[in-house]
């Protein structure tokens, strides 16, 4: 199925994506994968030759925002970007991802030690923060030469162990690698890996934007309907100003993300980092304040606000937001004479 980006706009996808993601929420990850694949969302960026839609990155953003709002537990960001990354080097794996026949996980922390001998490329070490790794067919992990590698979870020497994590909806795992053998096609160059991570910064920003919009909507609804002292909570200036500040940072996030796709290539890296940082900082602010506005109800397990908060905090750790901030500063400092 091919789409013409000249006649479609990214937002044309938003409503359809929201419906598809809602439909995929009932059932396990395999069920979700098939539903999302049937709706074309897993291959939105992948080339047509492997079953993708071949659309620009901006088209993935409303889809990811819809997933963020719906608290989708499916590893959508990982699948969308990994399918594009692997389409040239491992077309069968990429095709399986786009078709919803296989799951991919990314180990966001740690690096595998890469070496080579007469038998090929060898990986050792421990990597972590790999959500749903127990159900994945492939793991994408950073290597100590600046690049990355794709490892089949069934490979000899791969030991997947549950790890502690703040987000129970996306259980985290560690991978212990001992003399794991991969072919050269499984090796991702440093340049490709950096581009992948940069695209993920935008994708995370879109996920958090959707999650934050959902939480602010809940806070507004509660503040407008909950009555105390004879009037709605939102009639109190203190709460009106908190809600207004939440809206301010939400629109900061939206503007910063949108500008990534309008900016010249020379400023893409800076804009992507800024968009991600605005999203993490803003998302945490919005969700924490939404819990506060809900009072005791906001502190309950049944209110999903904590689930959004856990997810955003998990993304903050996966992306190493502090490192992103330092990179942003260092690049700026370096370019000043």
């Amino acid at each position: 199925m091919a789409f013409d980006p000249d006649t479609l706009s990214p937002n044309d996808f938003a409503a359809a994506a929201a419906a598809a993601i809602a439909a995929s929420a009932h059932g396990d990850l395999s069920h979700a994968a098939r539903r999302l694949a049937d709706d074309g969302l897993l291959g939105i960026l992948a080339i047509e030759e492997i079953g993708g839609l071949g659309l620009p990155e901006s088209f993935a953003m409303p889809v990811l925002s819809a997933a963020g709002a719906a608290r989708s537990t499916f590893p959508l960001l990982e699948t969308i970007f990994a399918a594009r990354l692997l389409q040239g080097r491992l077309p069968d794996a990429a095709t399986a991802l786009v078709a919803g026949e296989a799951l991919v996980s990314v180990a966001w922390s740690g690096e595998g030690s890469v070496g080579s001998d007469d038998d090929g490329v060898r990986l050792d070490g421990v990597v972590g923060r790999a959500s749903h790794a127990d159900k994945a067919a492939f793991i994408l992990l950073a290597t100590d030469d600046g690049g990355a590698a794709v490892v089949s979870t069934g490979s000899a020497g791969v030991d997947i162990r549950p790890a502690s994590g703040i987000d129970p909806d996306r259980p985290a795992f560690e991978l212990h690698l001992a003399d794991v053998r991969v072919s050269t096609e499984n090796i991702v160059s440093a340049e490709e890996w950096q581009a992948f991570r940069l695209a993920c910064l935008q994708g995370w920003a879109a996920l958090i934007l959707g999650a934050s919009e959902a939480c602010l909507a809940m806070a507004e609804e509660h503040a407008n309907t909950r009555r105390q002292f004879g009037k709605a909570l939102s009639a109190n200036q203190a709460l009106r100003h908190i809600l207004a500040r939440q809206k301010l940072v939400l629109e900061n996030m939206r503007a910063a993300l949108a500008s990534c796709f309008e900016a010249p290539s020379s400023s893409l890296q800076m804009r992507s980092r800024a968009a991600f940082l605005a999203a993490v900082e803003g998302g945490v602010f919005i969700i924490e304040k939404s819990i506060q506005i809900h009072g005791g109800m906001g502190f309950t397990w049944d209110m999903p606000l904590h689930r959004y908060l856990r997810w955003v905090r998990d993304i903050q750790a996966q992306a190493d937001a502090d490192h992103v901030l330092l990179d942003l500063a260092d690049d700026f400092i370096a370019q000043v004479a």
């Binding site: 800076m270 980092r273 800024a274 940082l277 500063a329």
Partner: peptide, 15 residues
Amino acid sequence: RRIGASVGDAEVLKS
């Protein structure tokens, strides 16, 4: 970090 935060703020404003 504080310089990075200001750079981020300026990027948001430009956006």
